[in-house]
Design a protein around this nucleic acid. Structure first.
Lengths: 250, 250
DNA sequence: TCCTTAATAGTCATCCTGACTATAAAAGGG
DNA sequence: CCCTTTTATAGTCAGGATGACTATTAAGGA
């Protein structure tokens, strides 16, 4: 990137280097969490045209002195009210960039989309007036403004895929969690039930995925035998991967 | 996205919707091919400051009326002289967007990077004055202008990963190819030798990956027993994946 | 003709996974 | 207090997939 306009770039001859085509650059965030065994996404209600009153993914303009990733973290902090330290450390994944010329009816805007995973469910308290932010079940997130349904679908697919070969799932969990909760994350994001013994075997057989927490098997909450607690381990990748059960042969 | 500047986006209060921060948007292309059992990348020599005279990835400004993907295809056609039809059909993969504020010393430029795979080795004949385009062995592609070494590294990693779970490798091959040539693609991109019988077994066991070509086992070229010919099949994904031999346990 | 090279056919043991069965430890209802 | 329900956890078992090898076939070159 950052090319000089010149003949071979396709710019018109005699093109002035400073007279580049002007674009606005924004970020859009697909912030996901697992809540009550359902995948939720953070949505805001638009207060401005176009799509005034419609639900949309949070986002905003990239400022002149920050990268798109920095803008995404700033917007995330503003929308959720999470502490700077929390936002600074959580996983932000750049999805892709959407640049169709007609994405925005007012002007040429390209948007860099990010996906973020949040542990539990801190009700969003927008930094300023953002009581307009709400957790919405993923399947209820329609219609959305602009091409945000597409972005959300891409985010969902990317997260589903990354669960297969990374330890990302622990990002959906609190600091200490049970294997049942971790399994719930997979089942919720993938939308399929998993066999508890097999899931347990696989997770425990992957070095560095999770670490046992010493204490008693406290923290039941519901019925059933109390489960042991684990925390996220140092590993970041899964070898071999934990594949979605899709190629099922009966 | 395409957001209206407003208080909750982080824009200054009273911000005028049209006075968005101005950015230039470019595309950069990591065009890869396998040539003489080595991975090559298409580089151009810069004729303008900054980095005048340095090698760089081909690319250029996105025009006001085209998407980044369309700009990438246009630039690719201009740099390689490939036919419009060829360029229109080959696989272009959006990598990610690079937006560090200091990427370009002259102005604020964000660049959408793409990776492309080309079959054999059509010596690049730039559309206009682009005799400045050259195939360069991937490991010789340094130093490069701007952050292009980083982009190239990201492209290499992305392609390596996609070879594992997609049929992308056939994109490096001509219309008809031998399993040895296909294996060569994997070995070259991954930089590791693969066991020929095992590779063959895996490829043939994946439905739709390749289809046998009827004719005689023509097209030898070198020594050894002549190999049967295949063409790309209809499948696009590999289930289960063909994983890189990295987690080797001795 | 002998040697080298590369494709292709098989073998074998191991690892991983999906499908199940069984046991343990809680909560809740009668 | 006993019984049922629920969830966690321990094992078992067969089949598929893979890595490591051996063997055979069919060219080219010296």
């Amino acid at each position: 990137m950052t090319h000089q306009p010149s003949e071979h770039t396709g710019a018109p001859p005699g093109y002035d280097p400073r007279a580049f085509p002007p674009f606005a650059v924004t970020v859009d965030l697909a912030v996901l969490t697992v809540r009550a065994a359902r995948l939720h996404v953070l949505l805001v209600r638009r207060g401005e045209a176009p799509h005034r009153g419609a639900w949309a993914l949070p986002g905003g303009f990239v400022r002149p002195d920050e990268s798109a990733g920095a803008a995404a973290r700033r917007e995330l902090a503003e929308e959720t009210g999470l502490s700077g330290s929390t936002v600074r450390h959580l996983h932000l994944e750049q999805l892709r960039t959407y640049s169709e010329p007609d994405r925005d009816p007012r002007m040429r805007v390209v948007s860099v989309a990010y996906a973020a995973l949040l542990p539990d469910l801190p009700e969003p308290r927008g930094g300023g007036d953002a009581a307009h932010a709400r957790w919405t079940p993923r399947e209820d997130a329609a219609p959305l403004a602009f091409d945000h349904e597409r972005i959300l679908a891409d985010a969902h697919e990317r997260v589903s895929a990354k669960l297969e070969y990374t330890c990302l799932a622990t990002g959906f969990c609190p600091a200490e969690f049970t294997l049942g909760e971790l399994r719930q994350v997979y089942e919720t994001v993938w939308g399929v039930p998993l066999d508890p013994p097999n899931f347990r075997r696989k997770v425990l057989a992957t070095p560095g995925f999770v670490e046992a927490v010493e204490g008693p098997p406290r923290r039941t909450g519901g019925r059933g035998k109390p489960a042991a607690l684990y925390r996220a381990g140092p590993a970041s990748a899964l070898h071999p991967p934990l594949l979605r059960p899709e190629g099922r042969r009966p």
